[in-house]
Amino acid sequence: MHDSLLRAVTLSVNGSPVAVPAGATVAVAVAIAGQPCRRSVSGEPRGPLCGMGICFECRVSINGTPHCRSCQIVCEPGMEVRTDG
């Protein structure tokens, strides 16, 4: 693991603090928090599938903006991530 990944960044996922290595994506933070990223239109829990920003399964709300593809966005300190819509 690289040095950059060893420094921790703290953000919140559904109100609870989560520490991730610097450079980690929001999808990783959500996974570390043990949450699915979203509920599908019929209510199933979903997490990342493609890891490269095309499948839209990893959508979360970041700082109030819905439908952010969490696998494409790097964590920043203090980010507020919500997976509950």
Binding site: A24, T25, A27, V28, R46, C50, M52
Partner: peptide, 27 residues
């Protein structure tokens, strides 16, 4: 991706998909 029963469960990912997640910091 090909659909099979259960493929929508969290932690079922693409092969490259999981690799990309791990490269992005997933332990």
């Amino acid at each position: 991706f090909l659909p099979f029963p259960g493929w929508t469960l969290p932690n079922v990912m693409g092969a490259g998909g999981l690799q990309a997640m791990v490269k992005s910091g997933l332990p």
